[in-house]
């Protein structure tokens, strides 16, 4: 029981009476790479923002590491590393300065801070670019720096919100590998995406989300079992999504 890292219970977020996240309940256990799969506008980022206390839920409960976000925010925040969907780095600061600044926000200083900078940059393979300005980076490098900035305080739960949007396949593979590596080192990971293959490749459990609701949840094989007639049938998550929602995921995402 106490290995539950995230517990959402009847989570609702409404904008102008429209429920963008609509009664979400789920549990994520320690050591998982949990995938949240859904088309644009499904409510993935909104859910992540509520988990990180960036947004107040309209209703429902969020428990992280056994703490309630409403009452124990201070204890929760150092445990989370949030990699936002939109880049959040200073173009006019060097790579190491970005990591320094954002790591120091957690009260880390001195030698521990220096080590954290080195490790974070090494983790995303930007050590050789530590003295370059972030504004001179390619899209992929910026994404990697964006990740490094959330690692310095050694969080136990990493939340990646579409970290591979708009970058080349090499950088994408690199990022996916890093996520697996971080997970091996002990971090629990939440990974949101609208790319099936990515989710299929790295996630241990997947929730399919549409219109603010979770339609199905399970390992990729469990999800496929919901749809296929016999075990040997080879179908993709794409087809699972199509069958469960009656919509094509790609229709949303590529336009």
């Amino acid at each position: 029981m106490n290995d539950t890292v995230v517990r959402l219970d009847g989570l609702i977020k409404k904008y102008d009476n429209r429920a963008v996240v609509d009664g979400l309940s789920l549990e994520i256990r320690e050591g998982e790479i949990f995938g949240l799969l859904g088309p644009n506008g499904a409510g993935k980022s909104t859910t992540m923002n509520m988990i990180c206390s960036l947004l107040k839920p309209t209703a429902g409960q969020i428990e992280l590491f056994g703490y309630n976000t409403k009452t124990d925010n201070k204890k929760i925040k150092p445990l989370i590393g949030y990699i936002p969907q939109e880049l959040a780095i200073y173009g006019n600061l060097k790579a190491w300065e970005n990591v320094e600044l954002f790591t120091s926000l957690y009260g880390i200083k001195g030698q521990a801070l220096k080590d954290a900078i080195d490790e974070s940059l090494e983790f995303v393979k930007l050590s050789d670019k530590r003295n370059a300005f972030a504004k001179t980076f390619s899209g992929g490098m910026k994404r990697r720096l964006n990740i490094a900035c959330a690692l310095g305080h050694k969080p136990k739960l990493l939340i990646f919100d579409e970290p591979t949007v708009g970058i080349d396949p090499q950088s994408r593979n690199f990022i996916l590998e890093s996520i697996k590596a971080a997970n091996k080192k002990g971090a629990t990971v939440i990974y949101t995406s609208h790319y099936m293959e990515e989710v299929e490749a790295i996630c241990t459990r997947i929730a399919i989300m549409d219109n603010g609701k979770i339609i199905a949840i399970g390992t990729k094989n469990e999800l496929k079992d919901m749809v296929r007639k016999n075990r040997d049938e080879d179908i993709s998550l794409e087809e699972v999504f199509l069958t469960l929602t009656g919509k094509k995921l790609r229709d949303y995402t590529e336009g």
């Binding site: 206390s53 960036l54 925040k77 939109e86 880049l87 959040a88 200073y90 173009g91 006019n92 926000l105």
Partner: peptide, 21 residues
């Protein structure tokens, strides 16, 4: 301007730094 353009607020708000800092 740099902070607004570059979404830095997200990092401030998800960190343990306070408004005073």
């Amino acid at each position: 301007i740099a902070e607004r353009k570059q979404n830095i607020g997200i990092r401030f708000r998800s960190s343990t730094a306070g408004g005073a800092h």
